[in-house]
């Protein structure tokens, strides 16, 4: 597993069977998850992570561990670096010419921040969803089948299966099963956002990064997304940026509070919202600034 990331060029092989494997694992895990997540396995971790945009020091020495099958919320005032931090986890910052990253990003104990890491394999394992739904100008089916196709799935039957499974997992299947070949751009905002989640799930990532996934949606769609995330955390590790304190409190297991590029406090969500140890955190969660 660790080697698959460091040996760069050979494209990742699609393992169709992984799903049924995970299904078996899942049941075992379900039992585990129902107990309070004390100190589970670390899914991804940063050590002394710094991100610069030119001269702007956007992330300052952040060390954080994210645990498997948990939802971790990243909160903080606008411009504090939440999106930047999230983007560094799947190296999407590489696509920004001015961005420079130092420190370590450990996935399965491998530093995926290293230049020789296969970022495509990394991004397949760490999926991402943005604030504004960004479906491709293709049919619903093709949106979901897009990534599996270039990750090597060719047979129509396999693709059909992946598309249905991903759409079901994103709680969208029933709404779109009769219009799979219509344009994705005809869906509502909330449906588009779930489609984008389905698209990310189609590559079977281990970690899902969500940057304010519900902030452009109406309350009903938001509730659906939240419900969905709750369902998804059984199988995935979820890291979510949100400006909505209630949302963070409702859905997350742990919360990290950022301020001016620094990690101020990281603890159980309950602790953060009821008895934070830092004054800045208390001010922020109680709405006194930000």
């Amino acid at each position: 597993m660790t080697d698959s990331l460091t040996s760069a060029p050979p494209r990742p092989v699609w393992v169709v069977d992984r799903w049924s494997e995970t299904r078996a694992l899942e049941e075992a895990e379900d039992r585990a998850v129902s107990q309070p997540a004390a100190e589970g396995a670390v899914a991804i971790e940063t050590r002394s992570l710094n991100v610069y945009y030119g001269d702007v020091h956007a992330i300052k020495d952040v060390s954080l561990k994210f645990y498997r099958h948990e939802i971790t919320a990243l909160i903080g005032p606008s411009g504090c670096g939440k999106s930047t931090y999230l983007r560094s986890l799947n190296r999407m910052n590489d696509t920004i010419p001015t961005a420079r990253t130092t420190g370590q990003i450990l996935l399965d104990g491998v530093d995926v921040g290293r230049p020789d890491v296969d970022v495509w394999a990394l991004r397949k394992r760490v999926g991402m969803v943005w604030q504004r739904p960004n479906p491709f100008n293709k049919s619903i089916y093709e949106n979901v089948a897009f990534a599996p196709r270039f990750h090597g799935v060719r047979k129509k039957k396999d693709l059909d299966e992946i598309v249905e499974r991903s759409l079901r997992a994103a709680a969208l299947w029933d709404e779109v099963k009769d219009r799979l070949h219509e344009s994705a751009l005809g869906l509502s905002g909330g449906q588009q956002q779930r489609l984008v989640i389905a698209r990310a799930l189609a590559v079977e990532p281990e970690i899902l990064l969500l940057d304010e996934p519900a902030s452009s949606l109406d309350p009903v769609s938001t509730a659906k997304i939240e419900e969905l995330l709750f369902e998804l955390k059984k199988r995935y590790t979820i890291i979510i940026v949100t400006h909505n304190m209630q949302q963070a409190a409702r859905i997350s297991d742990r919360t990290a509070f950022f301020l001016n590029g620094e990690l101020i406090e990281y603890a159980d969500t309950k602790t953060i919202f009821t008895r934070p140890s830092r004054k800045e955190t208390e001010d922020y969660v109680s709405g006194r600034f930000g």
């Binding site: 495509w120 397949k124 999926g127 943005w130 100008n137 990534a147 990750h151």
Partner: peptide, 24 residues
């Protein structure tokens, strides 16, 4: 953000150009 969506799914630059940009 469409391009970013493609990269985030593990698409290479060429895959993004061929399958997303050319079509759009």
């Amino acid at each position: 953000e469409i391009k970013a969506g493609s990269y985030a799914l593990g698409a290479t630059r060429w895959q993004t150009i061929w399958r997303i940009l050319m079509r759009a």
